[in-house]
């Protein structure tokens, strides 16, 4: 009986939180609209997110690409189609690994930082202070960070995929002796703009919206104490990662149209 009650409580709480998060998103979108006149605030945030994540994205992209090169070569060479290595690396990155790994890294690095920053601003009464100065913190603080994250994610994803292809090239062509011409031409012929690139772009935009939304909401909704901010940061990483992986499956299923 008691377990049931606790369970019910958890369900009600989560539903209520999701509702609050949805209303919050609506407010943020309204605020974003007003930001069009002060777009430099958004540019600042894109820059801030970029500074945080660029290095980790580039390094991870390179290594993921190199591993893809190694693994792909070992499989392809068994079927005598090592020349398709470029295509394999590019497709894996553009359709799948680029958006997903970027989003996961983004959540761990920039998302958690966003939550901590906003949570601390709340705990130190900076947001309340703004309200009392007749400045809406959702428009001034949250919306620029939200838009910044949404804009940064596809850019970072593109960089990740690009550097990943370089990594694959480095290993495949440089170390394993795949023909450079075949590597690039197979890639060029096989990657479709609409089916593959746009698919990846859509994923990265969706991930950008969801991860940044979770990050700013957790910060804004944090209990305004140091423990509250710490657990909010934690939740950002967990929820974002789960959301990214779950949505990835749904988006893949939708675009492949086979489920």
């Amino acid at each position: 009986m008691n377990t049931l009650r606790v369970l019910g409580g958890i369900v009600i709480n989560s539903v209520e939180r999701v509702g609050r998060a949805a209303m919050f998103l609506y407010e943020v979108l309204l605020g974003s609209w007003e930001l069009l006149r002060r777009f430099y605030l958004v540019v600042q945030q894109v820059y801030a997110v970029g500074v945080l994540t660029l290095l980790i994205i580039l390094v991870s992209g390179l290594f993921v690409g190199m591993v893809l090169g190694l693994q792909g070569y070992n499989t392809l060479v068994k079927f005598g189609s090592a020349n398709s290595l470029g295509l394999l690396v590019a497709l894996s990155l553009v359709r799948e690994l680029g958006p997903v790994v970027t989003a996961l890294l983004f959540a761990g690095r920039a998302g958690s930082a966003l939550t901590a920053e906003i949570g601390l601003m709340k705990a130190t009464e900076q947001l309340a202070g703004m309200e009392m100065m007749a400045v809406n913190p959702v428009t001034r603080v949250i919306a620029p960070r939200f838009l910044g994250g949404v804009i940064a994610m596809p850019l970072l994803t593109a960089l990740f995929s690009a550097i990943g292809v370089m990594g694959g090239h480095l290993v495949g062509v440089g170390l394993l002796g795949v023909d450079a011409g075949a590597f690039w031409s197979q890639m060029q012929n096989g990657v479709d703009f609409h089916d593959d690139i746009m698919n990846g772009v859509i994923k990265s935009v969706v991930f950008g919206v969801v991860v940044t939304w979770i990050s700013v909401f957790e910060g804004y909704d944090a209990v305004p104490t140091s423990e509250g901010v710490a657990s909010a940061t934690n939740r950002t990483v967990v929820y974002s990662s789960l959301a990214v992986l779950g949505l990835d499956f749904i988006l893949t299923a939708l675009t492949l149209g086979e489920v």
Partner: peptide, 8 residues
């Protein structure tokens, strides 16, 4: 505000 609430 009690804490000053300056924008850090």
């Amino acid at each position: 505000f009690q804490t000053g609430a300056l924008l850090t």
